[in-house]
Each structure stands twice: as C-alpha cells, then as structure tokens.
C-alpha cells in the first residue's frame, strides 16, 4: 500500500477515535438531561426521600453530601498540605521522606473500595463510630490525602529558589519563610489541587457503601455521629430499582451531581489559569 494512503487512513481513523470520545460524552450528557430535566425542580431538591418515586426528593442526600464534604475538607486539607510541605521543604534527602514518597505513589493506586474496607475495620468497628458521617469523612480523607499532598508539592516546587533565599538572607527562620513567603506564593496551586480532590470525594460511592452510608435516610444529620446518605448513594439506590419512575429520579439527581462536580472542576481550572497568568517569576 502507498505510504501516503496509509498515512491518510490512519489520520481519519484517529480523528474518528477522537470524535468518538467526544460523541460519547455528548450522548451521555444529552441523554441524562432528556431523562431527568423534567423531574428536576425546587421541590425535588427540598423533598425528603420517599418510597413513592413521584414524591421522593434528594434533600437528605444533598445535606449528607454537604456534611461529608465539609468534614472531609476539615480533616484532609490541613494534614495533606502539612505533609506536602514536609516532603518538599524539610525531608528532601532523609530516608523517612524517601519511604513517604514511595508510599504515597502506592496509595494513589489502591482502589477506593479498599479504603472502604480499611474504614470499616478501623473507624466503624475499632473506633466504634458505626455508620456515622464522621466514619465516612475519615475514610474519604485518607482516600484523597495523596492527591492533596501531590498537588501541594507541585505548587511549592513552582516557587523559585530566589524567593526562599531572599527570605533567609533577611534573617527569617525556615518556618517564617514557608508560612509568609512560600505558602502565599504557592496558594493558588494548593487551592486548585484541594478543590479537585474534594470533587473526587463527592463522586465516590464504593467506599461509602462499605462504611455504611444508607440508601434511605428520612432525616438530615444533626451531628458527626448521625447516620447519613449521600447523593451518589441515592442515585445508586434509584438505579437499582426496577420501576421506571425511579430511573427518572436517578437521572434528575445525576444532573445535580454532575453540576456540582463540573462547577468545582471548572472553578479549579479557572483558579489555576488565573494563578499561572498572575504569577510570572
């Protein structure tokens, strides 16, 4: 076969592959909007769950997601950022830092459901937290820690050495340099990474099923020890029902979940671009 012909055949094949990916995304989104948008109204968002599909709402699931997200953020952000600072600024050559580094790479590759098993044994059973919001949040925190750590390190790495040296030259201590010079300069990158990590946590279903998130919760959690459901759990539950009306509910709830995910991702990308443009070393 002629080389040029081969080249062109591949070109069109590769373009169709790319279009296939984009087409799937579109079919997927359009299909869900068609299925669910008619069911989506304010009442659907503020109604309690119900065994009757036409009465069921996602209020408790949304509030559960807000609780889980809030607690996960409170737990995971300080630990993740601190660990990132340690690895990048302090432990550079130590053996401990080397072990940490290999370990974090490994953790990032462990399936999320395994974190669920860890949470079930340690938080739910050993700590006696039961099927509580805090047990779920602790589990998700461990899951997203590697993402936050890696993002923090990348952001700190991007701060040039001169800033650090200038600060030291003025007599600042190491921690003063980090807290007053490096962290403010790296802030945009850290925040972007944190938002992406949290948006990952919002969509996680499998680990929360294992640590006991419920599919039917008629009340909003009042404290971290209360039982809860989350949006993806509610969606999973509705998908699993044979009645067609529940599939419509699932599609409507998916629109809400996707909106939250896309807004968070979009915001993270916006921050990253702004940060990259603003800071020119």
């Amino acid at each position: 076969m002629n080389n040029r012909l081969k080249n062109n055949i591949f070109k069109y094949w590769a373009i169709s592959c790319t279009l296939f990916g984009i087409a799937m995304l579109l079919i997927f989104l359009i299909n869900i909007v068609i299925d669910g948008v008619g069911r989506l109204d304010w009442k659907f968002i503020t109604d309690l769950p119900s065994r009757k599909p036409e009465l069921a709402g996602i209020y408790t699931a949304i509030m559960g997601t807000v609780w889980i997200l809030g607690l996960t953020a409170i737990i995971a952000i300080p630990i993740g950022v601190a660990a990132g600072i340690y690895l990048e600024e302090y432990g550079k050559k130590s053996r401990f830092a080397n072990i940490l580094e290999i370990n974090i790479t490994n953790l990032a590759g462990i399936p999320s459901i395994i974190y669920g098993i860890l949470g079930l044994e340690v938080f739910v059973r050993m700590f006696g937290l039961g099927n509580s919001v805090i047990a779920g949040a602790l589990t998700l925190s461990l899951l997203i820690l590697p993402i936050i750590i890696v993002a923090t390190r990348e952001a700190i790495k991007a701060v040039p050495k001169t800033i650090r040296e200038a600060s030291f030259a003025l007599g600042a201590t190491k921690w003063q340099t980090i807290s007053q010079q490096i962290l403010p300069a790296a802030g945009g990158g850290v925040v972007t990474g944190v938002i992406l990590a949290l948006s990952r946590a919002i969509g996680e279903t499998a680990p929360l099923i294992v640590v006991g998130a419920l599919t039917y919760v008629p009340f909003v959690p009042q404290s971290p020890m209360d039982q809860y459901s989350v949006l993806p759990m509610q969606i999973f539950n509705w998908i699993s029902r044979p009645e067609k009306e529940f599939a419509t509910n699932a599609a409507a709830a998916i629109i809400v979940l996707l909106l939250i995910t896309f807004i968070m991702n979009g915001f993270a990308i916006y921050l990253r671009n702004r940060w990259q443009k603003k800071v020119k070393w």
Binding site: F28, I32, S199, I202, G203, E204, T205, A206, P232, I235, F236, I239, A247, A250, A251, I254, L257, L258, T261, F262, N265
Partner: peptide, 9 residues
C-alpha cells in the same frame, strides 16, 4: 471527572 455511578446509569 464524571462520577462512576453515573457511568453505571
């Protein structure tokens, strides 16, 4: 970035 439960649907 799409949650996997959505892919299940």
């Amino acid at each position: 970035a799409i949650p996997t439960v959505v892919y299940g649907f």
